[in-house]
Design a protein around this nucleic acid. Structure first.
Length: 445
RNA sequence: CGGGGCUUGGCGCAGUCUGGUAGCGCACCUGGUUUGGGACCAGGGGGUCGCAGGUUCGAAUCCUGCAGCCCCGACCA
């Protein structure tokens, strides 16, 4: 993409309303603009990131056997009256009325809707297991939206719903999502720690929050240091196998958010030098809720012996729009964002220092077209601006690699590349630079 | 929803106490000089001062009401 033809309104100064780093940087780097409290428009650059995250989430859901679909944002109140949540959900639910005075609502979640679909269309145990998901906008009328997209009222979320004939099968579905989540966050460049979460009245060990560590996290978290070092399951993991042992290492050590934290247990379970007390941002939540909705909404299937059994269900959320903020919280410096390679809106920022110089233009065009042909997303700053502004904007936007083309380098047949994360600069012959720019830069220690 | 604060050009702010017809920096446009980390000179465009009433000869400024937004708390992907 040529910057001269792009829409990228960056801000030199910090907007007064933005308090935390990700919010400030998302506004300054031209990712979003606020429409009203907790509601944002996604500008082209931010939209690219949102899509990149969605794509990774989608790929890992599909790999785990979940099926993508799409349910509406607007739901009928009738459905929620059936599950008994219409009155119970409270003011967080945005209630609206259509022209016929029928009560509707902007969905804060989709358990009722998916349960209805499954109830009406799945009759036999032979159709199970089933895990359906969608990536859709939700609305929760938070009392106090804050922190930009991290705590917005409107937010993009991946929510999956599993349906099985037994608790055992539901456990299997749960483990698949557990593994899929580890892999997803790993690919997003995040270290997400599964933490035992409140299971409510159902009990058991079938609820985990996935939390990433960040200084500005909303809640305090406590865990065993070794958990942070655990690598995510690799490509060799098969979702057809029993995943119990695969999951074991992740759930055996101490890990809790402040609401579930037990200081005595923490000190008893974890040696002093292994205790990590940090802050975290919840980016995913998986849980098994048994027959909570299938019971009241009468979702059942016939078993081999002709009986009817109520479905066992789980739901699995990932806060896609929140992740944009969370990733920035986990990866930025005083100059701007530092995108992980996998979600960077553009992986290479190509800076032409002198657009009036034919040599610079030729080298830039060459690099731009060749990298693009290799599938690398390049943002080419071909604006007739001063060098300082270009450097600052590029640091702010946070492309993992920067390639700087100026008359000096062109003369010498060299390109200066900069690793945004480490700040390390290298001057290389053109071909050597090309090789570097086509793959992820070495990470900061 | 309780407590606090804010609302003046695209962004950041001053002016409000003590009423006199709107200003600064950045950004934007034009011309020139510049050009490897947010240049300089000259000229220029852009604001019903959140909205609605009221007081007054006169209101950004005083009074009343309303709205929006931000921060702290309870609540949450």
């Amino acid at each position: 993409m040529r910057l001269s033809a792009y829409f990228l309104p960056t801000l030199k100064e910090n907007p007064a309303e933005a308090q935390i780093a990700s919010h400030r940087l998302m506004l300054r780097a031209g990712l979003v603009r606020q429409a009203s409290a907790g509601i944002y428009s996604w500008l082209p650059l931010g939209h690219r990131v949102l899509n990149k995250i969605s794509d990774i989430v989608r790929e890992e859901q599909n790999r785990a056997g979940a099926l993508e679909m799409l349910m509406p944002t607007i739901q009928s109140a009738e459905l929620w009256e059936e599950s008994g949540r219409y009155d119970g959900y409270g003011k967080e639910m945005l209630r609206i009325t259509d022209r016929h005075d029928r009560p509707m609502l902007y969905g804060p979640t989709n358990e009722e809707q998916i349960t209805q679909i499954v109830r009406d269309n799945v009759r036999s145990y032979k159709d199970l297991p089933l895990n359906l998901y969608h990536i859709q906008w939700k609305f929760r009328d938070e009392i106090r939206p804050r922190f930009g997209v991290m705590r917005g009222r409107e937010f993009l979320m991946k929510d999956a719903y599993s349906f099985d004939v037994s608790v055992d099968d539901a456990r299997t579905a749960y483990r698949k999502m557990f593994v899929a989540y580890l892999r997803t966050f790993e690919r997003l460049g995040l270290k997400a720690l599964p933490m035992a979460a409140d299971t409510g009245p159902i009990g058991g060990d079938m609820s985990h929050e996935f939390v990433i560590l960040a200084e500005t996290g909303e809640s305090a978290v406590y865990c065993h240091r070794d958990l942070i070092e655990l690598p995510a399951p690799g490509d060799e993991v098969s979702y057809h196998d029993d995943l119990t042992l695969v999951i074991e290492p992740y759930i055996s050590g101490y890990a809790a958010t402040d609401e579930k934290h037990d200081q005595a247990a923490f000190e008893a379970d974890v040696p002093a030098d292994k205790r990590v007390e940090a802050r975290g941002i919840e980016v995913g939540h998986i849980f098994y809720f048994a027959t909570k909705y299938s019971e009241v909404m009468k979702a059942s299937v016939a078993t081999p012996d002709g009986q009817n059994v109520t479905l066992h269900c789980g739901s699995y959320g990932i806060g896609v729009s929140r992740l944009v903020g969370a990733i920035i919280e986990a990866s930025h410096d005083e100059d701007g964002i530092i995108w992980p390679w996998s979600v960077a809106p553009f992986q290479v920022g190509l800076i032409n220092l002198k657009v009036t110089d034919e040599g610079c233009n030729n080298v830039c065009e060459d690099i731009y077209s060749r990298l693009t042909a290799l599938g690398v997303d390049v943002l080419y700053d071909d604006r007739d601006e001063r060098a300082g502004g270009k450097f600052s904007d590029m640091d702010l936007i946070g492309c993992p690699w920067q390639a700087v083309i100026g008359p000096r380098g062109v003369e010498a047949g060299e390109v200066e590349i900069k690793n945004r994360a480490t700040g390390e600069k290298e001057t290389l012959p053109l071909e050597a630079a090309m090789d570097r720019l086509a793959s992820a830069p070495p990470e900061k220690k």
